[in-house]
Design a binder for these strands. Structure first.
Lengths: 226, 226
DNA sequence: CTCCTGTATTTTGTATACATTATACATCTC
DNA sequence: GAGATGTATAATGTATACAAAATACAGGAG
C-alpha cells in the first residue's frame, strides 16, 4: 500500500468554527459594523445553520474582543472608543518591540529571507492600489517577524491585537501619502533585524506602530460621530 | 417614590457564565488537572444543567487558553509545556514592566494608598501559612498596579496571563524560603512607583516576574513526568 | 397629547432529540 | 495468540423545542 495516502482531516471543521471564521472576517472587513446586532436566528437563517453553532461562534468572538453581549439582550459587534484604541496601541507597540528583540536573537537565515520577501512584496503591492492586498502584505511582513520570535503565545496575542485594529487600519491605508514612510520603516526594521541590532530595530518598530496612532484614532472619531 | 430602589441585575448570570466561572475556578485550583477530559454529559450531570451552557462555557475556556478541544473528540484542560510557560513568562514580564511604567505616570494618591494596603496585607498573609490567601494577597498587590495604569485592556491581558500561570504559581508559593525576597521586591516596587521612578520600578518588576521563572518551570517538569 | 398599561412579537436562555463519529471490546480468522 | 473486523457504547455535532425575558406598539385613561 502506498505510504502517502492519508485523509486530510484539516478539511473537516465544526460548523461553529466555520461560522466563527465567517463572522470574524465580516467584522474585520467592515461588513458587520461596530454596534451592529448579532441576532442568532437571523444569522442562522442567513448562513443556513441552526442557532447552536451560531451561539458558540458568538461566545468565541466575545472572548476575542470582537463582540460584546449583554445577557438577555444579545450580542453586537464590539465598538472601540478612542481610549480603547489608545490602550491597544500602547500594548501592541510594547509587544511588537518585544517581538523584534526576540527575532533579533532567534531569526534563522531562512526566516530572514522570508522577511525580505514579505518586505519586497509589500513594496510591490503598494503599487497595485488594492487596499486588501496591501493590508495583507503588511500583515505578512509583521507575521514574518512574529514567526521568527519562536514564541507561539506572543504570535497569537499580536495577531489578536492586530485583528482588533484591522477595521480602522485599512481605512488608514487609504491615505497613500504615507506609503513612502511605511516602506522606509519596513526597510529600516528589516535591516535592523538582519544586523541583529536589538535596540535599534525595537525602537524603530515601536515608532512604526505608534506612527499609526493619530491616524487610526481619528478614524474612530469619525465612527463615533456617525 | 424613593430613588434608591433598584433591582440588582448583577444577581442574574446566564448559566454559561456560572458554568464558565465554576470550571475556571476548578482548573485554577487544580481540581481539574491538566490533560483531564471535559466531558459535556458528565459535567452537565454534575452541575445539574444541560449540555448547552456547558458547551458555551467550554468555548470560552478555550479562547482563554484554559482548555483545548479536538473536533469530535472533545475538550480537555490545557497542559502547559515548559516552553509554553517560558513564552508566557517573557510576555508577562514585558507587560508587567509596561504596567509599572504606566502606573508611575498615572497613579493617583488613592490608588497609591490602595497599593500600600495591598502590600502590607501580603506581608501579613505570609504569616498565615494559608496558601490560597497568600496567593490572593499577591494577586491583589499586582492588581493594584494594573488598576493604576488606567488601561483596561492591559489589565485584562495581564489577568489572563496570570491565570494561566496560577496553577503552577501556587505550588511555587509553598516554598516559604522565598517569602523574604518577595516582600523585599514588593516593597522596592511600591517605593519605585511612589517615587514615580519609571525605569527603576519597571526594572524591579521585570526581575520580580522573571525570578519566578525557574521555580515555576520546574513545577511543570514535575507535571510532565507524571 | 402624554403617559401608562396590556398584549403580541421577537429574541435570548436552556433543555432535549437526533445524527454522526470515536472508542472499547468481543469475536473471528489465520 | 496476533491482528482484523464487527458491534455496542459513549461522546460530540447539530437541530429543534420550549420557556422566559425584552421589545414594540396599540389602545385607553387622564
Amino acid at each position: 500500500m502506498t505510504d502517502k495516502l492519508r485523509l486530510n482531516m484539516n478539511e473537516y471543521l465544526p460548523l461553529r468554527d466555520v461560522v466563527f471564521n465567517t463572522l470574524r472576517e465580516a467584522i474585520l472587513k467592515g461588513e458587520l459594523k461596530p454596534g451592529e446586532r448579532l441576532m442568532e436566528l437571523q444569522l442562522a437563517a442567513k448562513l443556513g445553520v441552526s442557532r447552536t453553532p451560531i451561539r458558540e461562534a458568538i461566545r468565541m468572538l466575545e472572548q476575542e474582543g470582537l463582540a460584546v453581549t449583554v445577557p438577555r439582550k444579545g450580542a453586537e459587534v464590539a465598538k472601540m472608543t478612542e481610549k480603547d484604541m489608545e490602550d491597544v496601541l500602547v500594548i501592541r507597540a510594547t509587544l511588537d518591540e518585544l517581538a523584534v528583540e526576540l527575532a533579533c536573537d532567534a531569526i534563522t537565515e531562512e526566516q530572514l529571507a522570508q522577511l525580505q520577501r514579505a518586505r519586497r512584496e509589500f513594496e510591490n503591492r503598494i503599487l497595485s492600489k488594492d487596499l486588501k492586498k496591501i493590508a495583507q502584505a503588511d500583515v505578512d511582513f509583521h507575521d514574518a517577524i512574529y514567526q521568527a520570535t519562536g514564541n507561539a503565545r506572543l504570535m497569537a496575542m499580536l495577531s489578536n491585537l492586530r485583528e482588533q485594529m484591522y477595521r480602522y487600519r485599512v481605512e488608514y491605508l487609504k491615505d497613500d501619502s504615507k506609503y513612502p514612510e511605511l516602506v522606509r520603516e519596513h526597510q529600516a526594521i528589516t535591516e535592523g533585524i538582519r544586523a541583529r541590532d536589538k535596540s535599534l530595530a525595537a525602537g524603530l518598530m515601536k515608532k512604526h506602530v505608534l506612527n499609526q496612532a493619530a491616524a487610526v484614532k481619528s478614524r474612530i472619531r469619525g465612527q463615533e460621530s456617525r
